[in-house]
Amino acid sequence: MAENQTSVGKSFLAGLWDENPVLRLILGMCPTLAVTTSLQAALTMGASVIFVLICSNLVVSAMRNLLKPHLRILMFTLTIAAFVTIADLFLKAYQPEMSAKLGPYIPLIIVNCIIICRAEACASKNGLLVSLADALGMGLGFTGALTVLAVIRELLATGQIVFTFSRSFTLIRLPDVPLFRMAGMAMPVGAFLTLGLMLGLVKLLTTKRA
């Protein structure tokens, strides 16, 4: 039992830093780059991915002994697609603004490598508890990386961080200087450059520590 507990904790912590999907494994680049123009979009994306990841990991883990090898991938895809559709409907109903902004990137969670990779590498081999911990860790790690990227990009592009629910309110506002009005940061260029520099920094930190 004690051994079991450590592996639950381990698989949760692994996703946060050591095996962080974005920063260390370079998985799921497409949403990472596309939705980080604003913090709210990034958080919405993160929440959707966490939801889908938890559900698919649990389902796959529950049926892991019934899976036939060559139909495995098809089964994973089916499970993920079903939960993504539910997440998409939910967002359309309760967060219409965000749903319009994220557009096709919500359905594209289906082909997000993180989810299918976790189903294959973790959930189809481990019990429910470990799979759940793994999903939470990976999901939070993904959301964390997205949040950092989105904060940098939104602040540098618009000089402020704005949330919109029924009405919009500003979280942080920087002084009105040209440095904080780099429109390029909101464009694809900004996404690639920021993530590239961020990965470089992470690499620098980890090599120093080792």
């Binding site: 370079i26 694809p188 260029v189 900004g190 996404a191 690639f192 450059l193 993530l195 590239g196 520099l197 990965l199 470089g200 920094l201 690499k203 620098l204 090599t207």
Partner: peptide, 15 residues
Amino acid sequence: PAALRGAPITLITAG
């Protein structure tokens, strides 16, 4: 630079 080798420099090139 050592820290940028691999994925980081690829992303910057992509940018």
